[in-house]
Every structure is written in structure tokens, then in C-alpha cells.
Amino acid sequence: MLKLKPVETYRDDFTFSNSPEAIKRFPFPFQQDEYRYSVNIEPVRKGGAGSVYEHWFDIDEHYLSEVNERKTVLEKDPRRYMIAPHMNLAAWDALEMLMEHFSNDYPELFTLNKQADNWTWHNHALGINDSFSFGDNDSLPMEPFAYITRQAQGDWALLDQRQGDLFMDGGMITGPADWSLAFDLGMSFKEWHGPVPMAHEMGVFDRALKYLLNIQVDRPARRLNWSMSINPLLEQSPESYPDWGHTRNEVSNDNVGHLVHLRVEVQGLHRLPRSNALMFPIRTYLLSLNDLVTQPDWGRRLRQVLMTLPPELVDYKGLSRYIDVVIDFLEPWG
């Protein structure tokens, strides 16, 4: 039974913390002692009970905190939510998929009733009770994609599939790892991956795109991405870089274990049935180094990965100023 923590913060006083259960289920991303780019996309397979992979769309103890954080970000800057008009059908596809899975997988938190097009949705965690007509924007308190993603954890992008390519034509992006929807909106698949080092030359994106274009309904794919954050900062956006950038320069031996967090994205790729678009959830998990080293072999492996990380990736992931402090910190674990 999922126990929701009361609201904690991902900014200002950073009260966020992981329970022992959350630490154990953290999706540690490294299979080997070395990390290199690859087409690491694979079909979604149901994970073990309680794992982050058990359900397509994971909800954890931080649900209330993340919902609150999203609300805060959007109040400061509404343009973290953008959607092109031609993506409205995809938005309804996304709403349906999330409502069905949430109500099916977390029945204690969500209830969905359907009578033909007349739906009622109950979010018991947030006290939301709405009736609406499926497909009718005016019957919801706000646009469908905003409506449902405000009740979900993680960032969400909508990719239009046309002309043998994918275009980022919508998104609810309030917790990005250093990318801007306001800038990237409308870009094609390889364009929005423009700044990624090494992978283009390796042909990673050509192969990945082919895979994505062929994803079938009910056959989603998944991949992991990782970086690091100073503090449990979910909203590590270019927009607010002037606010958080200096923290990269403030890591010392005294605070590294508490301050530096491994940041892992569990990314999904789901075919939206009526629009034929792809929904791209980016579900982020944060773990402090102090908590990370409590798990068997994680400290040692992370140290090996960081020691063998190519300089281009160290730079691209923004680790340059403090990676040595982290490597030193992890030394006792190997």
C-alpha cells in the first residue's frame, strides 16, 4: 500500500528526503563499471512488485510534493506548459492512458468511471472530482494535457509523428535536466538532441528514431538517462540557471554527501492510439550520495563510472566543477 509523504520541497529549504523504501527502489542506472551512449531503448516489461518498473506510470511517496512543485513552477512561469493546436487529439489520448493506468494500478488513489463519453474522475489524494465529456475541451476545467499532467509525477512531452520523423509539439516540462521546452518546441528528434556529444557520430539517433517510429499501441519502450543535481533540485532548468548555477561551485568534502544527488530519468515511449503520436514521459528520481552509498555496490560502481566518463560527457552533464570531490567521497567504497 503506497504511503504518500506530506509535501516536501525541491527548492528554497529543500526538505525533500527519501525513505528507506524509496532508497531501495531507486532505479540505479549503471549495469557496468563504465558508461557510454548506446541505443539503450528496450520494450517495457513489468517489473517486480513495489519496483519503479511495476507499473507503466510510477507513483511514489513523493506524489504530493511533486504535484505541489509543478503548481509552484507554473505559477512562476506558465510557459513550462506549451502545446501546439494540432496536438489536441494526442492530448486526449494521453489523458485516457494516464487515467486508465492510474485508476487501475493505484485504485486507492484514483477512480475512473466511464459511461460512453461521459467520464468521472476522482483523485482522492488531491480531492479532485470532475465529470466531463471525453474529447470535449470545454467540459474540463483546463486543457486535457495540462489537466492530467498536473496530477502526475515527472515531465511529459508529446511528439507528433509525421514525414518519417518526430516533432516535439507539446510538453509539460517543470522538472527538466537542463533543457528548455520554450526553446526546443517544434524541433525534430535529431534537432532537439543537437547538443548531445558523441552520440550523433555513433549513429545512435538514427537507430533510435527508427525504433521509435515503429512503436506499436500497447507495446511501449523505455530507456534510462542520468545526470547529477546539487540539492534535490527537480527544476534544473536553463531558465533558472542563474539561481542554481552557483551551487555547482559550492561542493566541498564536508557537504558533498548531502548536497550532491544522482538524478535518474526513467523515460517511456508510448504510442498514443488515435493520434498516432508518441507520449514521452520523463520520470525523475533523486538520491543523495549519502543515501546512495548505503546500497550494496552502488558507491563503488558509481565511482568507476565517473572515473571512466569521457571528458565530453563530464562537461555536457555539468559535472566538471565537482566530479573530483565526488570521486574522492566515494573512495572508501572502492
Partner: peptide, 19 residues
């Protein structure tokens, strides 16, 4: 050097945000 065709612009971000 990240360029947006829609905006016709390159991205600019604060060069000395970290220090």
C-alpha cells in the same frame, strides 16, 4: 550553438552563473 529554426535563434544562457 543549439539553434531553433522556429525562433531563428541560438540559445543564450548566463555565462557566469556558476561563478
Amino acid at each position: 550553438d543549439h539553434f531553433s529554426k522556429r525562433l531563428g535563434s541560438y540559445m543564450g544562457f548566463q555565462v557566469n552563473a556558476e561563478c
